[in-house]
């Protein structure tokens, strides 16, 4: 990828982060930490990787995305809005009575959302179903899904982990947002899913470990997944929870709490400074 394109993507991701924080702040409710940690990945997927068209969100040949960690809807809605699926101006209605921007992704109400999610462990199974449908219909679309690292504690994830290699779903690329924190604290202390890479390898996945905030490394991992035949790929992304906002970074307290007015202003100020810096570059 050219440096200028990486800068463009970083700019979009900064705006996605701002939108996600605006959503959570406006609702006084939501999940900023994990939304910020996947903002770079979602930007890359929706602006560089996936074959999608905001004007034709139900096209049967499109690539699909399932946010298995559905509580990070602010990041998904923000990237969809920035990509043109619906107006960015609607973001502040998030979680408000009557809004189509439900607290967790709702495929029936939000343009561009391919699967309703929010109950952890289920998204990756739905992604399996979509990948299987692609195989049955001999279509060449790809399916992407993002799991939380805490989400790996759900038993259903491992049912899916067995299933995808069994049916050789090489059209499925899954990601683990490995930020190391869940609501109750450090994942290793709450209920360790470690080592994540060896677990998925032993289940028959092609596993890649990479940096969630390095666009080039992420893109290279995604391309490697596309080239991998006969098995699904799991990309374990080492990420920073709360990435991009100094006081939210690596702090489990920001898993599911909204910033107050002062904190929101500070976060926007930091992201605006980042945007200004990127524009200069």
């Amino acid at each position: 990828m050219e440096t200028s394109r990486i800068t463009e993507l970083k700019l979009i991701a900064a705006n996605v982060r701002k939108d996600a924080l605006t959503a959570v702040h406006s609702a006084s409710s939501g999940h900023p930490g994990g939304s910020l940690s996947i903002a770079d990945l979602l930007t890359l997927l929706y602006f560089e990787v996936m074959n999608i068209d905001p004007k034709d969100p139900k096209n049967p040949d499109r690539d699909r995305f399932v946010l298995s960690k559905g509580h990070c809807a602010p990041a998904l809605y923000s990237v969809l809005a920035e990509r043109g699926f619906f107006p960015v101006d609607d973001i502040p209605t998030f979680r408000k009575t009557g809004s189509y921007l439900q607290g967790h992704p709702d495929m029936k109400s939000v343009p561009g959302v391919d699967m309703s999610s929010g109950s952890l462990g289920q998204g990756v199974c739905a992604a399996n179903g979509m990948a299987l449908a692609g195989k049955i219909d001999k279509k060449d679309y790809r399916v992407y899904t993002v799991l939380g690292d805490g989400e790996l504690q759900e038993g259903q994830v491992w049912e899916a982990a067995m299933y995808a290699p069994h049916y050789k779903l090489d059209n499925l690329t899954a990601f683990v947002d490995f930020n190391g924190l869940q609501i109750d604290g450090d994942i290793a202390e709450v209920m360790s899913p470690l080592p994540i890479d060896k677990k998925f390898e032993s289940f028959g996945w092609h596993v890649i470990v990479t940096d969630a905030h390095d666009f080039e490394a992420l893109l290279s991992a995604i391309n490697e997944a596309k080239e991998t035949k006969g098995k699904p790929t799991m990309i374990i992304m080492k990420s920073v929870k709360g990435k991009g906002v100094s006081f939210m970074e690596n702090n489990a307290a920001w898993h599911g709490s909204a910033p107050n007015d002062e904190q929101y202003a500070q976060a926007i100020k930091e992201l605006d400074a980042e945007i200004a810096k990127l524009k200069e570059a």
Partner: peptide, 9 residues
Amino acid sequence: TTAAGLASC
């Protein structure tokens, strides 16, 4: 949930 994914397609 796999059934749900298939049905969505």
